[in-house]
Amino acid sequence: MSTKNPNRIDNTFANLKSNNRSGFVAYIMGGDPDFDKSLALMKAMPDAGVDIIELGMPFTDPAADGPVIELAGLRSLKAKTNVGTILKMATEFRKTNNTTPIIVMGYANPIHHMGYATFAAAAKNAGIDGAIIVDLPPEEDAELRAAFETHDLALIRLATPTTDDARLPIVTKDTKGFVYYVSVAGVTGKALGQSADVASAVARIRKSSGLPVVVGFGVKTPEQATSVAKDADAVVVGSAIVDTFFKHGHNEAIKLIKSLADAAHKT
């Protein structure tokens, strides 16, 4: 594999743009239900149409997540997953794929415990491209951001329906890669926000950040994916995939991912 330092996120959005289509971002919980099954799903995702992988890092107290992700995290922890295991998944994945961006998503404490600088170096080494740390708002992410900048990793910020015009510049300043718009004020897996609101929010954030805007929280079906993809640069689906994978296994999860990816790519 190439050892140079590809900017997989920017390349991915550039490719999507040149093909004039929106992207599809899929979230899975790393290590759920165990390392091997989770890694097999991750490896199958690019061929099923996933443009960016969001790899969940489990935490005992996921206060921003709904029950589907929370339970997935607890299953993963039961299988002895930790930050090191998640990094190992990325390393394994990179052995056969050097183009699909991997964004890890989770909570601050496990990486704070490891040490932000140690985590950033290890993440880079594992072929990870960026992170979303749910409980690090701009006011608290300076230390991690500095560590990420050293290793040219993207610390991706969240914008939400409560992020008003006064606050938006605080959120979009210093952000890299893309901005993740949370379509509803709520936990993961709830109902989707009103499409008119999503369209105007995406436009506002794109203007403020100059970056691609991906939209998630509440997208469950291909119809919703198509509808959101009309406005967003990419659509994120998490809970629906995690739930299907848990209840119906690998093949059904891949089938769902394919249908969602096709729906997102249609636009």
């Binding site: 206060a63 921003a64 601050a108 749910v134 409980d135 690090l136 708002p137 006011e139 608290e140 910020r157 969240l158 914008a159 939400t160 329906p161 409560t162 992020t163 008003d164 606050r167 959120v171 949370v182 004020a185 709520g186």
Partner: peptide
């Protein structure tokens, strides 16, 4: 003003809760 007691405290919440 950032809610810090030395190295402790702060505002480690999801973005949705920052405005409230």
């Amino acid at each position: 003003e950032n809610g810090r007691f030395g190295a402790f405290g702060g505002r480690f919440v999801a973005e949705t809760l920052m405005p409230p």
